[in-house]
Design a protein around this nucleic acid. Structure first.
Lengths: 204, 204
DNA sequence: CTTGAGGTATGACATATGTCACTGTTTTAA
DNA sequence: TTAAAACAGTGACATATGTCATACCTCAAG
């Protein structure tokens, strides 16, 4: 019996997935989390064979959960459940130790296969993304710094440079430099594109 | 037996919901659609007691499905299933004849109740939004024109004014005027905020 | 027929944005 | 201990953006 923790914020989706998964009698979703913080709590309190982790969640995103797990030396295998083929996020997730990912667009059989494969200790990479992952391993050099993440979050709220400067207690010039760096790392040419990318690929 | 059409793009979510709903023996999901176009096809070919409609779908969004249904005099009751409390979209959806909406965050019982309520001919409005709906009925005056929608779509792709002008075969000045109008109607102060709003509230 | 709304366009203007070059300090890793 | 990042800042510059006033055309509703 594979004891799973299911972390997914939307109640109906969470219930639906739990139900679908328990149609398979090797899989048991013994706990569910509606956000990243709860997920981390449950991981501390119980032991699981596998974590099914949504990327887009309130409180703590999937990436934040992975970071915390890595820092806490928690080696419970993680299978990412994601909406889009958000390449950059997946690269980050894999670098943070995730064992694989599955799209919500996948067939139920694929999900169940993926769970069993990860449980056996293997990785699960869907073909469409594998090439990207292989060819973009150097994407790590594109990784944003902590400060840049901060600024990106502000950008995604629609704040101006001046407003960001006030919020983060910096000069406007400094923020401009950070924004410039972010645009270069995300390979886009203005803040609007950065926000679109950040939202679509749930970098924030 | 309530014969339902379930339109939801993500396979796992669609399967999950279908399964959950069929736990109730008054409800039967007799067909599913993975995008808005398929949904419209199915509506032409079959008759349903109720449509469960996701707003965010490829091919045709929920709003586009509602528009087409309205034009085709299709009066099948529609219950919106939505992710966020995307107020503006919901106002539009209700104005396009939707009978109610339910958040994916809701409990299963709420969804089933909502289906039965709509089936009986009533409306379903969740309290959190009812006030907004009531107090923002004049939001129709804020409605974007067809052209403005076009421009907003371009904005959400991260295009510059010049690029939009090329794409839509207009002068840059014209696009600037449209953007200016869009900002005013969305009550935001720059294009980035407009994009954030458009994405969050799936206006696009 | 006239009015109004949508669409197109221009020119001028004030800001905002993004880039560059350069200078520091602090923290981290080798 | 040194070198490399990250972080903070400045000044200058070229563009992009958003606003305004104004104008003309078209189409549909009155």
């Amino acid at each position: 019996m594979i004891k799973c923790l299911l972390a997914e914020d939307q109640t109906l989706v969470r219930l639906g997935l739990k139900n679908l998964l328990e149609l398979d009698d090797e899989i048991a979703v013994i706990h569910s989390a509606e956000n990243g913080a709860v997920c981390l709590d449950l991981l501390e309190q119980h032991s699981f064979d596998l974590v099914l982790l949504d990327m887009r969640m309130p409180e703590k995103t999937g990436l934040e959960v992975l970071r915390t797990m890595q820092q806490g030396k928690d080696t419970t295998p993680v299978l990412i459940i994601t909406t889009f083929e958000d390449c950059d996020v997946l690269v980050k997730a894999m670098n943070l130790g995730a064992r694989g990912y599955i799209l919500k667009d996948a067939q139920l059989e694929c999900l169940i296969d993926a769970i069993k494969t990860v449980y056996k200790g293997h990785q699960v990479l869907q073909p469409a993304l594998t090439n990207y992952l292989l060819s973009h391993t150097q994407i790590k050099t594109e990784k944003l710094t902590a400060k840049e993440y901060e600024v990106l979050k502000c950008l995604s709220l629609g704040l101006s440079n001046k407003a960001i400067a006030n919020t983060l207690n910096n000069s406007e010039g400094t923020i401009r430099n950070h924004v410039s760096q972010i645009l270069a790392k995300l390979n886009v040419s203005d803040r609007t594109q950065a926000v679109v990318k950040a939202i679509n690929e749930c970098l924030i």
